[in-house]
Design a binder for these strands. Structure first.
Lengths: 138, 138
DNA sequence: TATTGTTATACTCTATAACTATA
DNA sequence: TATAGTTATAGAGTATAACAATA
């Protein structure tokens, strides 16, 4: 696949890592999107539904179902944002913080294992490429 | 998102580019997975269901439905592989070749637009990172 | 017996549009 | 009127297990 499209390689890598993550985190019994949402919330900051949707690439309508399950399982809370009661702030519960920490730890482990043979500046450049692709698609 | 996980950035970029591709190719009326399958077949070589599944990261059971629609629309054909009649060879039809070429052209256009500001060696390094992530997830 | 692909089932993701409640 | 989020609907992706055909 030497002269393959970067975007096709991107989708291949995403599918593969998604599957690996689901396997490594099987005891959490979470879907890929739920893992993605918690991974993005792992810094502890609250986010609105729109903000979280922009971060993980899903629309508010899709996010509603994902957040429903996370809320039912006690991993997040939803609350009206002070000052604008239309917006809903998503916040991790204590349980959610622990689960998100486990997700981040697994992310780091998988990344270190996968990228151990590559120089830091190459990985750094890859991040720039990923961000450029994300930005171009706005 | 400076010290974000590479995998989270990867998923973000995939969602974003997937959405952009679907928009740019809206006249084809294909889903993301159908575009992905045709994009991988675009070199004109035949592939078995398993081989194609490995390339795009979906299982044979999932691929069946995707291939059903592509076959119904006359973009691919399925035929028993000579020598092993269990395996099914997927081949683009003339129509499929034209559609796949359009997909590859759009992929190139989007990539060039997105990555125009980045040095070639950085993009090359990013490919290595993507392949390393794909390989690690086996 | 093992492998390739399909079928069956149940659940999740997705897009779109209509809706509620705020602003 | 516009915005944030939810609901409703229909179609598509997903995992798993069972199955048929072939090896």
């Amino acid at each position: 696949m030497k002269n393959d499209s970067v975007i096709l390689e991107l989708q291949r890598a995403t599918h593969a890592t998604l599957h690996l993550l689901a396997t490594e985190l099987a005891d959490l019994d979470l879907t890929a999107s739920e893992i993605n949402a918690l991974g993005n919330l792992a810094d502890g900051a609250s986010r609105t539904v729109s903000e979280l949707g922009a971060a993980i690439g899903t629309r508010p309508a899709t996010l509603t179902g994902i957040l429903d399950r996370l809320e039912r399982r006690g991993l997040i809370t939803r609350a009206a944002r002070p000052g604008d009661r239309r917006a809903v702030l998503i916040t991790l519960t204590d349980d959610g913080v622990r689960t998100a920490a486990q997700i981040r730890h697994t992310l780091r482990t998988v990344e270190q294992r996968a990228l151990a043979g590559l120089p830091a500046d190459v990985v750094h450049g890859a991040r720039a490429v990923l961000r450029a692709l994300t930005e171009a698609a706005r």
